[in-house]
Design a protein around this nucleic acid. Structure first.
Lengths: 195, 195
DNA sequence: AACAGAAATTGAGCGCTGTTCAATTAAAAA
DNA sequence: TTTTTAATTGAACAGCGCTCAATTTCTGTT
C-alpha cells in the first residue's frame, strides 16, 4: 500500500513511540517486543522498521521519553518545594523510579552494542536531568566550593542511583534493608555537610 | 543414548557451568544462550535442560559462581592489606567489576520473573560478600555505634555500586566523569567520618 | 550370552524474537 | 487516465527458550 492519509510520518513515529512506551511500562524490558508494538498501532513489523532503524533505535527513543518525563517530574516537585530542596530531590528521584518501575529500569537494562555511542538527543536529555540536580547542589554549596558542583553532582547521583537500584532489583530485600530512601538521603547529607 | 561413562551427573553440571561462565564472560548477558553453551560442552540442548531447569536456573548458577569469585577476590586483597582497609575494599570492588565486566554486569542484568524469590544458595553467597564488608565497617566504627554496622554496610555497598555501574554502563562517560573510584571512596570516607 | 529394565541423551518441533526486502498497493503527478 | 513515486506489507531467515516422544546406551538378571 502507499501512504495512508490518516497518519503522517511524524504522527506515525509518535504513535509507535507512545505504544512502545506503554508496552514497556506494562511488560518491562525483557518482555518488550517490536512486533507487539507494531500490532498495537495496527501496522506491520515492516512499517515499524521503516520508521525506526532497529530495536536499539526504538528502545533509545522510548528511554529518551522516559528521561524527559523523569526530569519534568522532578522539576514539578522542586517548584512546590519548601526549604529542604535536597530531600525533595532524593524523594522525587525515588518516587519516579518506584511509580514507573519498568520504564525506569529499562533505561539501565538496555545496553548499546560494544562501542556504539549514545545519539545526541539521548545524551542531551540525560545531561538536562543532571543539570537540574547540579543547580540544587550548587545552591547549598559554600561559594568557594562552587567549582566542585559538577563532580559532586555526578557522585551524588551515583549514590542515590545505587540505593534506588538495590531497592528495586531485590538486592535490598535480600539483605533485609527496609529504609533505602532514608539511607540515600543520609549519605547525600553527609557529603554536602563535608563540603 | 544412555549414560555416557565419560561424565557423571555432577561432572556434567560442572562442565556446563564452566562453559556458561566462559560464554557469559565473552558475550555478556544479551549475547548469552543456553544453546551455545550446550554446543560448547558437546551435548544437545535437551541434556542441558535436564541438568538445569531453565535459562533462569542456569543464569542464577553462573551468577552465584561469579559472586563467589568476587568474594574470594576481595578477601585475597584484604589479606595483604595495610592500614587503609576501606580503600582496599572500594578498590577491589571496582577492580573485580572492571576485570570481569560482562560477568559482573550479568549479575544485575538478569532479573527473575515477577515475584520469584532467589534460591537459598544464591542468597547465601550474596550475604557472604556483604558480611565481609560489614566486618570491615564494624572495625572502623566507634564501639557505641557498632549496632549501625548492618544498615551502614548496605548503604555503603549501594553507594559504591552506584558509582561502579555508572562507570561501566557509560553514564559517567556521558557526563564526562573521569574519577569514579575516587568519588566513591570519598563518599564512603565521609559517611564513616560522620559516624 | 541373551534379555529386560532403567536411565541418559537426542533433536525435531513449537512459538517466539529482530530483521530484511521483493512484491504489492495507494496516493500524487503528468 | 496513465505513469511515477512512495508507503506498506508479510513471508522468509536465523536465532532464541523450552518440551518430550523416540532412541540409545548402560546395568542387572537370568
Amino acid at each position: 500500500m502507499g501512504r495512508r492519509s490518516d497518519h503522517s510520518r511524524a504522527e506515525l513515529e509518535e504513535l509507535i513511540l507512545a505504544a512502545g512506551h506503554t508496552l514497556l511500562a506494562e511488560t518491562g524490558y525483557a518482555g518488550f517486543s517490536a512486533r507487539e508494538v507494531a500490532k498495537r498501532v495496527g501496522y506491520s513489523v515492516g512499517t515499524l522498521y521503516n520508521v525506526f532503524e532497529s530495536h536499539d533505535d526504538l528502545m533509545l527513543a522510548i528511554n529518551t521519553r522516559t528521561f524527559v518525563e523523569w526530569a519534568a517530574w522532578i522539576s514539578a516537585r522542586l517548584e512546590r518545594a519548601g526549604e529542604d530542596r535536597i530531600a525533595v530531590l532524593v524523594d522525587s528521584y525515588f518516587d519516579f523510579a518506584t511509580a514507573n518501575r519498568n520504564l525506569w529500569m529499562a533505561i539501565y537494562d538496555h545496553r548499546l552494542p560494544e562501542g556504539a555511542a549514545f545519539p545526541d538527543r539521548y545524551a542531551q536529555d540525560r545531561r538536562t536531568l543532571t543539570l537540574i540536580v547540579e543547580q540544587e547542589i550548587a545552591r547549598v554549596l559554600p561559594p568557594e566550593r562552587a567549582h566542585e558542583a559538577g563532580p559532586l553532582t555526578r557522585s551524588l547521583l551515583a549514590t542515590v542511583h545505587g540505593h534506588c537500584v538495590f531497592a528495586l532489583n531485590g538486592t535490598f530485600a535480600l539483605l533485609e534493608e527496609r529504609h533505602p530512601r532514608d539511607a540515600a538521603l543520609a549519605r547525600v547529607r553527609e557529603a554536602l555537610a563535608a563540603a
